[in-house]
Computed example of a mutant assay.
Amino acid sequence: MKIHVKIAWELLASIRADLRRRHAFAHERVGFLKAGASMADGALLLFAIAYQPVADDDYERDPLVGARIGGSAMRKGLQFAYQSRSALLHVHAHGGRGRPEFSGIDLRSGAEFVPGFFHAIPRMPHGMIVLSNDSATAKVWLDESDRGTYASSFTAVGAPLVKFGER
């Protein structure tokens, strides 16, 4: 199945700006994006609605990862998407240029926490996104037993229109 992620250019710019903010001890920032979902011609379209940054107090110290967030951050993320029954996407950035890749830690931890999103918000896809300074990669789960599928495209809509590389 092809998966397409669309986001308003202004929203994407504000997310990147938020993820660049310094934290007292975490080496990177994390946030949550809620998105609507629709099926058309056998493809899944996720369209970004809103972004919520993880609060400073919800980061936990862990020298083994760039950022670790606790259960409180996850609950707040789920509450953010629950009322509107939206898809929930965990977002962070690796910086650099070109299509970013998830690290091994990103993939292992995402395989643990994303399926849990289905307990609060079933029947919606969920996943994670990693941003670079000029591109993005998304991995989406269709249900809690899924292993995740990489999005085929990630499009920033607005001025300028930017479509990141096809998979």
Rank of each mutant, 00 (worst) to 15 (best):
Pro160Leu: 01
Gln79Lys: 13
Arg85Val: 02
Ala81Ile: 05
Gly148Ala: 08
Val130Pro: 06
Glu10Ala: 11
Phe113Ser: 03
Ser86Ile: 02
Thr137Ser: 14
Ala40Ser: 13
Phe32Pro: 00
Ile129Ser: 00
Gly71Pro: 03
Val65Asn: 03
Ala50Pro: 09
Arg21Trp: 01
Phe102Tyr: 08
Lys163Gly: 00
Ala159Gln: 11
Gly110Asp: 15
Ala43Leu: 01
Val157Leu: 12
Arg61Leu: 13
His119Thr: 12
Arg21Asp: 02
Ala151Pro: 03
Ala48Phe: 00
His27Tyr: 08
Gly66Glu: 07
Ala26Phe: 01
Ala55Glu: 15
Tyr51Glu: 00
Phe113Glu: 06
Arg147Phe: 07
Ser145Cys: 02
Tyr59Ala: 10
Gly165Pro: 07
Asp57Ser: 12
Ser135Gln: 07
Phe102Asn: 00
Ile7His: 01
Phe32Cys: 01
Arg29Tyr: 06
Ala159Val: 09
Asp143His: 15
Val140His: 11
Met128Ile: 03
Phe25Gly: 10
Phe117Gly: 07
Arg68Thr: 12
Ala43Val: 02
Phe164Ile: 07
Gly116Lys: 10
Ser72Asp: 12
Ser153Asn: 06
His119Gln: 14
Arg97Gln: 13
Asp143Lys: 05
Ala13Leu: 07
His23Phe: 01
Ala73Pro: 11
Tyr82Ile: 01
Ala17Lys: 08
Thr155Leu: 12
Gly104Leu: 10
Ala40Phe: 05
Thr149Ala: 12
Leu78Gly: 04
Ala17Gln: 05
Val140Ala: 11
Phe80Lys: 00
Ala37Met: 09
Leu45Cys: 07
Ala136Gln: 01
Val5Ala: 01
Gly77Lys: 08
Gln79Val: 04
Ser109Asn: 15
Ala55Asn: 12
Leu44Pro: 13
Ser86Cys: 08
Gly110His: 04
Leu44His: 09
Asp143Phe: 14
Pro122Ala: 00
Ala81Pro: 07
Gly42Tyr: 13
Gly104Tyr: 03
Ser38Asn: 12
Phe154Ile: 10
Glu112Cys: 10
Arg99Ser: 09
Ala40Asp: 06
Ala73Asp: 08
Asp58Met: 12
Gly70Ser: 03
Ala156Phe: 08
Leu107Asp: 12
Gly110Glu: 14
Met1Pro: 06
Met124Trp: 02
Lys34Val: 14
Leu131Lys: 11
Leu88Asp: 08
His119Phe: 11
Ser103Leu: 07
Pro160Lys: 03
Ile69Leu: 01
Leu131Val: 05
Leu46Asp: 06
Met128Ser: 06
Arg108Asn: 14
Pro100Leu: 03
Asp57Arg: 09
Ser84Ala: 11
Ser103Gly: 14
Leu12Val: 00
Ser152Phe: 15
Gly95Met: 11
Gly36Met: 09
His119Ser: 14
Asp56Asn: 14
Leu107Glu: 14
Gly36Cys: 07
Gly98Tyr: 02
Ala8Lys: 15
Leu89Phe: 05
Gly116Val: 05
Val157Asn: 05
Leu11Arg: 03
Ile69Tyr: 04
Ala93Lys: 03
Arg22Asn: 10
His4Trp: 04
Phe25Ser: 15
Asn133Asp: 13
Arg123Met: 04
Ala40Lys: 13
Tyr150Phe: 15
Gly95Tyr: 07
Ala26Gly: 09
Lys139Met: 15
Gln83Ala: 13
Ile15Ser: 08
Ser38Gly: 14
Leu46Ile: 09
Glu112Leu: 09
Phe80Leu: 00
Gly42Thr: 09
Ser132Met: 03
